[in-house]
Design a protein around this nucleic acid. Structure first.
Lengths: 222, 222
DNA sequence: ACCTGAACACCGTTCAAGT
DNA sequence: ACCTGAACACCGTTCAAGT
């Protein structure tokens, strides 16, 4: 169904290939993003891809660049550093959220091209303002960006087990947890539905973004 | 070189297969862990694996179980909840650290079998002691465990580009960052070596484990 | 109970060639 | 400049069969 008919065939380009790869990943997960599959979707030989990308790794780099470029830079403000840090991390999160299957790719190009470097520089700057020495700012900033990716990427089995199966699997996992002996695992049993579903909920993101910023606030400077 | 000679062939079992898979992942990364490769290492047909594991997914489940089982349960104490939480997360971290290529697998079995459920229950318990309602405790606890995994798994290109190549790549990345225009990216340029290397350093883990616990401390209850 | 052998439908990629 | 075709060395997996 996702196969593009020959009549609508457009000229291949890095952009059209990346766009279809993003759509594929959203629909069926990253492991469905295959040179051969993309070629087929464009009605073209697998080898045609190698004109536009030197290999699969550079296709993934392309996806990473696409993700990073979609980060909406927060409007400048004179708010305190922690609020600005929160805003920046949130902008990163918002860009990644529509593409949980791709989120893990974000890191590979953040220290390479323009928009990613700008984000990195800003994070370091804000952490310097917070009073951290450069080395510590680097360690914290690196972890913060990794953590935002984790926040988005950790939603299990994102979409690709066709919706129906996915919901069924969640119901089954909930039931399995609920059937555990309540005297050994009282909290797990009581929280079974939450344990299975929380990573898809909005509150999960807001709460843990907060946790990260609060964590930075709680760290000793030096 | 890693191929086991026929004379030393031992009987296959789930345990011996998992052990060799762990060794393979440590040495060459998770994508080297292949049914066919493992079979070859044991001097056996690929299909022999299917007697011990129903499919590759259940092999990965086996690796996940192995990881979780290696968590050393911290000795009981009457320390405040935040110290105990720190100790538990650290125990998880210490278990994962020797196997960065496998760390990402840890989550898939934590809510399934005994030792993982025990960890989950304890995390929820400590967060309840901290004053969080069950639903929030679930959201926080889930993220904390994900974050520890991230901390370990985020070390880029763990080992498998044969050591030499790996070091060379790091030097090259550092040089690339150092060559950026310092007027646009002053902090990135100044911190180039740290940006490339920090995720392999001990301080990175200690600092960010602290960040996580401080983050929980800083969150509002309710 | 434990393993083999042949086969199938997939991968990424190289190399030479077409237009 | 952009794409095809055949080939290679890999995957996971099924099915029938051996001991």
């Amino acid at each position: 169904m996702a196969k593009r008919s020959v009549s609508t065939r457009v000229r291949l380009s890095r952009e059209t290939i990346v766009a279809s790869a993003v759509a594929l990943a959203d629909a069926e997960g990253l492991e469905a993003v295959t040179i051969r599959r993309l070629a087929q979707e464009h009605g073209v030989t697998p080898m045609a891809m190698y004109w536009h990308f030197s290999d699969k790794d550079s296709l993934l780099d392309g996806l990473s660049d696409y993700l990073i470029a979609s980060v909406a830079w927060p409007e400048s403000s004179d708010a305190p550093w922690d609020e600005q840090l929160h805003g920046l991390l949130e902008a990163f999160l918002v860009a990644l959220r529509p593409h949980p299957a791709l989120a893990a790719l974000a890191l590979r190009r953040i220290l390479v091209a323009e928009p990613g470097l700008r984000i990195a520089e800003r994070v370091l700057d804000l952490l310097r303002q917070a009073g951290f020495a450069t080395e510590r700012a680097v360690e914290i900033g690196t972890f913060l960006l990794c953590s935002v990716i984790t926040l988005v990427a950790s939603d299990p089995t994102p979409a690709f087990p066709a919706g129906e199966d996915h919901a069924a699997m969640k119901r089954q996992k909930t039931a399995a947890l609920g059937a555990l002996p309540p005297e050994t695992y009282p909290l797990v049993v009581a929280a079974a539905p939450a344990l299975v579903n929380c990573r898809a909920q909005d509150g999960y993101f807001a709460l843990n973004l907060d946790l990260l910023v609060q964590g930075v606030l709680g760290l000793s400077r030096g």
